Simulated scan of single mutants.
Amino acid sequence: MSVGSHLEELKRKHQALSVKVEEAQRAPGIDGLQLADLKKQKLKLKEEIERLSS
């Protein structure tokens, strides 16, 4: 897998997690730990994207 295609895949995963986080924040009974885990996953992806982009 080339770096470019890997980067695109990471961006797709990051976007999907963004949607999940937004939906979870609007859900009435969201577990705080689940939300925190989603946000951590999203941050790790963002850091990896930034690392590969530079």
Rank of each mutant, 00 (worst) to 15 (best):
1 M>L: 05
42 K>V: 07
35 L>I: 12
41 Q>P: 01
26 R>E: 12
46 K>W: 00
5 S>T: 11
26 R>F: 07
27 A>E: 11
51 R>I: 01
15 Q>I: 09
17 L>R: 06
31 D>P: 08
3 V>L: 14
36 A>I: 10
20 K>Y: 03
11 K>G: 01
53 S>W: 06
26 R>L: 10
53 S>N: 08
38 L>K: 05
12 R>M: 15
21 V>G: 00
7 L>G: 05
50 E>N: 08
30 I>A: 15
41 Q>D: 00
31 D>A: 10
39 K>Q: 13
52 L>D: 09
14 H>F: 01
1 M>D: 02
31 D>Y: 07
21 V>C: 00
19 V>A: 03
13 K>A: 05
7 L>C: 06
19 V>G: 03
20 K>L: 02
47 E>G: 07
50 E>L: 13
30 I>Q: 14
33 L>N: 13
22 E>L: 02
43 L>T: 05
10 L>Q: 09
7 L>P: 12
13 K>T: 03
42 K>Q: 15
2 S>C: 10
43 L>I: 05
48 E>D: 14
32 G>N: 09
22 E>K: 10
45 L>G: 14
16 A>K: 11
52 L>Q: 13
13 K>C: 02
18 S>Q: 04
51 R>Y: 06
25 Q>T: 03
6 H>K: 11
46 K>G: 09
9 E>F: 04
53 S>C: 05
28 P>M: 00
9 E>M: 10
40 K>T: 10
9 E>C: 04
17 L>M: 09
20 K>N: 01
13 K>E: 11
6 H>G: 06
42 K>A: 13
27 A>P: 03
8 E>G: 04
8 E>L: 14
51 R>P: 02
27 A>W: 13
34 Q>P: 04
14 H>D: 04
2 S>E: 10
10 L>H: 01
17 L>E: 05
31 D>E: 11
34 Q>T: 08
40 K>Y: 01
4 G>A: 13
38 L>V: 11
8 E>R: 15
24 A>T: 15
39 K>E: 06
29 G>T: 07
